[in-house]
Every structure is written in C-alpha cells, then in structure tokens.
Design a protein around this nucleic acid. Structure first.
Length: 229
DNA sequence: GCGACAG
DNA sequence: ATCTTGTCGC
C-alpha cells in the first residue's frame, strides 16, 4: 500500500478526533485491577508488504503469582507500512481480531508501544483504548517523542516524560542494568496510575509480565509456523 | 535546513 | 519488528 501526503493528513485528523475521546481519569482503582492482559504483535516477514501479522493476548492474574488465565492468538494479512506515529494503522487490525477471541474480561491491557507519549496523544495503546473503551497502558521499549532525563541505574527509579510541555508519562527502570521503558496512559487511566500499574506487573525481568509473556508465546508460535513451511 | 522517529 | 551464538560485564 502506497501512502501519500493526503492520506497522512487525513490520518492525522482522525487521530486528533480520536484524541478528543480520551479519558485520562481512573475508571478503576488499582485494587480493582486484578486481571491484566499483555498484547504483542509480530510478523512473518517484516520486509514484504503485504505480510502476515500475528498477535497474542495473555491474561494474567496479578494477585495470584501472575497465573495465566487465558491466551489467544490471531493472524491477519496487513498492508500498511510502519510509519512513526501511525503504528496503530499497521497493528491495530490484528490486535482487535485477537481481542474479539477473549472469553475473559481483563481489568486492564498493557500494549507494547506508546500511549499518550505521542505528538497527538494517539499512540497504539491509546488508539486501542479509545476504540474498545478498555483501560489501557502503553509500554514502549524506546523513545518516540518527548523530553526527559535518564533515570538512575536502579530498579524502579523513573523520570517524567514531557510532550508539548505536558506530563505524558514516565521513563522507568524496570530492571537494573537494562534500558528503561516508556510508560504512559492509553485510555481510562491516569498518568500516575499507569505508572503504578506497570510497576505492579514487573517481576524479575525488564518487561512487565503480561507483555513479556505475550512476546514469548508469539516467538514460539512464529517459529513453529515457519518450521511447517 | 537538519536530524529524530513506538513496532 | 527480524536475521543469530557466543561472549563480555554488572
């Protein structure tokens, strides 16, 4: 699919409209959030377009040693390239298909990528949250936009991230000697609570458990699929 | 004008 | 995001 400047402008307007539906207040208190889902996406071949996207959602009970409650996958052929600030247009379609397969109703979703740490507050976690009206949080592994200082090299230290002079999220050191992750609200949650929720989901590794497991299951799924062909 | 730019 | 084993360092 070829993207011209007109389409980009149209999508920008769409993001701005969607951002008006954002709710950055806590829909639930932290104590009410027990089932947390992690969402991740991979591709069979990232160089070709169209290509097959595979998505996984893992639901964990964070009050029961991150016990796995449900795991679902979905595949979908996608034909939209990766363009910074428009990630949702590439990955959201598969994610929504996966989301439809869930039998359980998680209290919140951790999406890999940004929430409101985005030029128009419409990172993929926010886009997902607005479309589904779920509680969502963005957890990204690298910077998209924003001004911040590096947190100290100590587990759980963090620094604020500002975009347009506004506090949009935090850079968080989830593990010592590992690069920090970028945490921001997707939808239906505040900046402060999104940080606290992610901290509650961190175990021994850099990535919060829901996201980490979704990622691991995807790698397994992907290589088994490729072995067959 | 130039560099930066989630996955 | 993916191709890939061992290896160096905290």
């Amino acid at each position: 699919m070829y993207i011209d400047e007109n389409l980009i402008e149209k999508l920008k307007k769409e993001q701005i409209n969607l951002s008006k539906k954002l709710k950055l207040k806590d829909k639930k208190t932290l104590d009410e959030i027990k089932l947390v889902a992690g969402i991740d996406t991979t591709f069979t071949n990232i160089w070709e377009n169209p290509t097959t996207a595979i998505s996984c959602i893992v639901v964990l009970d964070i009050e029961d040693n991150f016990k796995e409650v449900e795991i679902v996958f979905a595949e979908k052929i996608i034909d939209f390239p990766y363009i910074p600030t428009f990630l949702a247009y590439r990955e959201l379609p598969v994610i929504l298909e996966t989301y439809k397969k869930l039998k359980t109703k998680p209290d919140a979703f951790l999406v890999d990528g940004m929430g409101i740490i985005h030029p128009r507050k419409m990172g993929i976690a926010s886009h997902f949250g607005v479309v589904t009206d779920e509680i969502s949080v963005g957890v990204g592994k690298s910077k998209l936009v924003g001004k911040f200082e590096m947190p100290e090299n100590k587990k759980f230290s963090y620094k604020p991230v500002y975009v347009d002079g506004e506090l949009r999220g935090y850079v968080v050191r989830t593990k010592k000697n590992a690069n920090p992750v970028f945490v921001s609200p997707g939808n239906n949650i505040s900046v402060e609570s999104s940080l606290k929720l992610v901290l509650k989901c961190v175990d021994k590794y850099k990535l919060p458990e829901p996201t980490r497991r979704a990622h691991n299951y995807l790698q397994k799924y992907r290589r088994e699929k490729i072995d067959k062909n």
